[in-house]
Design a protein around this nucleic acid. Structure first.
Length: 492
RNA sequence: GUCCCCAUCGUCUAGUCUGGUCCAGGACACCGGCCUUUCACGCCGGCAGCACCGGUUCAAAUCCGGUUGGGGACGCCA
């Protein structure tokens, strides 16, 4: 019987969920799903100064939106501070850790010397080897101290095998006796994190590569605490096109998960895109259903090289990574219409043009319309902007096609009402019939059909591009088309 | 500065462990064409990459060494 996989996502609540955090959460979630394990959500809020209520909610909302579910938590690190302190005491008692009375000034000075090469050893042994009496004396005098872990001296090293990066070795001499408890008694991240992972019985630590350098220290803590060491899998980082680590500070909203929600992404499309940023299958497959992804996922598929989130600020054509956009467009036109309909509904509601009939007597029409226009949209919000004229009678007309397709042809001022009359007279408002009427009319007037067709498209949809004109006419409907054509005279 | 990690088209990547089937495959983007009296979808085609140097080998994108480049970590932050 194999032990149950237990993984965790442990964000510090210092802002919204960004794509780096989302990616970490996704890989953890995927492993739990695949192995029938548990995902624990733990909020590492011990940095009280930077942690906020709002960001905790923001992170949870972000996770929920992309569809990540967790089995335990959220737990809060601050609730376990006593446990962390108890662990430190245990390490003190066993002699694995010691109290250090050095002041910051002393240490700064020391570090400078090391940098300048004025002293041979990186270690600062003054307190490490202090006698019990001296420790007691200093303590009685009220001299503040931190607790440091004793790193073995000599030739050895910490070795572990990272699932992604392979064997990692760190020499003891390259690790200083690191602080695990501050002079004010508060435990530090390295300690808290390990203690929490032990308590939560975490079997796999999956986190960003920026945690790689910390791992040897944490392994020493596991050993000193007599706890089993989990498996580690560090994931490559996400960089911007300038190869700088993605951060809230530098990139703002562009890297926030909620930004993609607000800009019309389907959450699954976004997750699918993110999962491919640094992970792949040997057949380079790109599109996965949830079940397929869980089936295909494996930590070994994580790439060691960092990847770039290709977002160009102020790009007129792509507001975010073109690949993300194209994946979203793919899902927009491939998913069953019924599945995207609710998403389109939200977007129309937000635009104030949602009609309850669209999910009642007009549901058939609504689905047909969404299906008709979706192949040229990239994001959901396009339905409310580019597609507004299908759902609302109050829509703008794009000035470019207005000029090119309407105003340039003065004859249209006469032809639009004429077309309206002819279309109104039809008893069967079908694709065949509308096409016959328009073509006959063009022939009689001895003009190219394109003139009248493009004119009508512009006036009826407000757009230069769109579905075939006869699809448009039959979809928008006889009465509305006739009305729009008659009103078009005002445009001249 | 010290330690660690990484390196295939502009971007995401397959191939690297187990050298030959790779004068390197797919996707996005870009460019052409077909379809279409619009645009998109779809289809067809094109552009474009093994960072560099040396070694091992009959044979190297794949193994080894170095160089360069990039990233990360070096806090009484998480």
């Amino acid at each position: 019987m194999t032990e149950t996989v237990r993984v965790r996502f442990a964000p510090s609540p210092t802002g919204y969920l960004h794509i780096g955090g989302a990616r970490t959460a996704i890989y953890n979630w995927l492993l739990a799903q695949k192995e029938g394990g548990k995902l624990i959500l733990r909020i590492e809020d011990t940095d009280a100064e930077r942690s906020t209520e709002g960001s905790i909610q923001g992170i949870i909302d972000g996770l929920k939106w992309i569809g990540i579910t967790w089995d335990e938590g959220p737990y809060f690190q601050t609730h376990f501070i006593r446990e962390h302190q108890a662990a430190a005491q245990k390490l003190l008692d066993s002699g694995a850790a010691y109290k250090c009375f050095c002041t910051k000034e002393e240490l700064d000075l020391r570090r400078k010397e090391v940098k300048k090469g004025e002293t041979g050893s990186k270690q600062y042994d003054k307190c490490r080897d202090m006698s019990a009496e001296d420790v007691a004396t200093q303590e009685q005098e009220g001299i503040p101290y931190v607790i440091r872990l004793k790193v073995p001296r000599g030739a050895g090293s910490v070795v572990f095998e990272d699932i992604v990066y392979g064997i990692i070795e760190k020499k003891y001499e390259d690790i200083e006796d690191f602080v695990i408890v501050r002079s004010n008694g508060q435990p530090l991240y390295v300690l808290s994190n390990v203690v929490d992972d032990i308590r939560d019985r975490i079997t796999h630590v999956i986190r960003g590569q920026d945690g790689l350098a910390n791992t040897p220290k944490q392994i020493m803590l596991y050993k000193a605490l007599g706890a089993p060491i989990p498996k580690f899998a560090h994931m490559s980082l996400t960089l911007d096109p300038k190869k700088a680590k993605i951060s809230k500070r530098r990139h703002g909203e562009l890297v926030a998960v909620h930004f993609y929600k607000e800009h019309g992404f389907l959450s699954w499309a976004f997750l699918n895109f993110l999962v491919l940023l640094g992970w792949s299958t040997s057949d380079s497959r790109e599109f996965f259903s949830k079940e397929e992804l869980i089936e295909a996922f494996s930590l070994e598929g994580i790439n060691r090289a960092n990847s770039i989130f290709n977002v160009q600020k102020n790009d007129p054509k792509f507001f975010t990574d073109p690949k993300a956009l194209s994946m979203n467009a793919h899902y927009l036109r491939k998913l069953p219409v019924e599945e995207i309909a609710p998403r389109v509904k939200s977007v129309l509601e937000e635009a104030g043009i949602w009609n309850p009939a669209f999910e009642a007597e007009k549901r058939g029409w609504f689905l047909h319309t969404v299906d008709l226009i979706r192949s040229r949209y990239h994001v959901l919000t396009d339905f409310a902007t580019l597609g507004r004229a299908y759902f609302s009678d109050d829509y703008p007309i794009d000035p470019k096609p207005l000029n090119k397709n309407v105003l340039k042809h003065e004859g249209l001022k006469e032809w639009f009402p004429q077309a309206a009359d002819r279309l109104e007279a039809l008893t069967a408002f079908t694709i065949e019939e509308t096409e016959r009427v328009i073509r006959d009319m063009a022939e009689e007037l001895e003009i190219k059909p394109g003139i009248i067709i493009n004119g009508i498209r512009t006036v009826v949809t407000g757009q230069a591009a769109g579905p075939g004109i006869f699809d448009i006419l039959t979809t928008v409907g006889q009465a509305r088309v006739v009305d729009r054509l008659r009103k078009a005279v005002r445009l001249f």
